[in-house]
Amino acid sequence: MKTEMLIIAILVMATVTYLPRVLPLALFKRKIQNPFVRSFLLYMPYGILAAMIFPAVFFSTNSIISAICGAVISLILAWNKRGLLTVAIGGTLAVLIAEWVLMLVK
């Protein structure tokens, strides 16, 4: 890919990322009064994140077995109210150990 094309493509990517982020924030200043819509918007993060995690998390590493180990450890840590960082490190380490064990077994 030529450098000019690459730069144009990056600009296109940046534009289609920024547009959906900026439009509601720039155009929508009013407080929504409707309780249904307000509750809908408050619940939205959980619905979207849940859909983003499952089942994609199981295919986020080299093997589904190590990914399941990482997901289970993350779930246990999060259930015990550990912070973002602890859960992220715990999940990563669990995958690392699982893949190391898998390699030894093979």
Binding site: P45, Y46, L49, A50, M52, I53, A56, V57, S60, G70, A71, S74, L75, L77, A78, W79, R82, G83, L84, T86, V87, A88, G90, G91, T92
Partner: peptide, 9 residues
């Protein structure tokens, strides 16, 4: 994904 899990659980 672990971070997302930490946010929603």
């Amino acid at each position: 994904y672990s971070m997302f899990i930490a946010i929603i659980v």
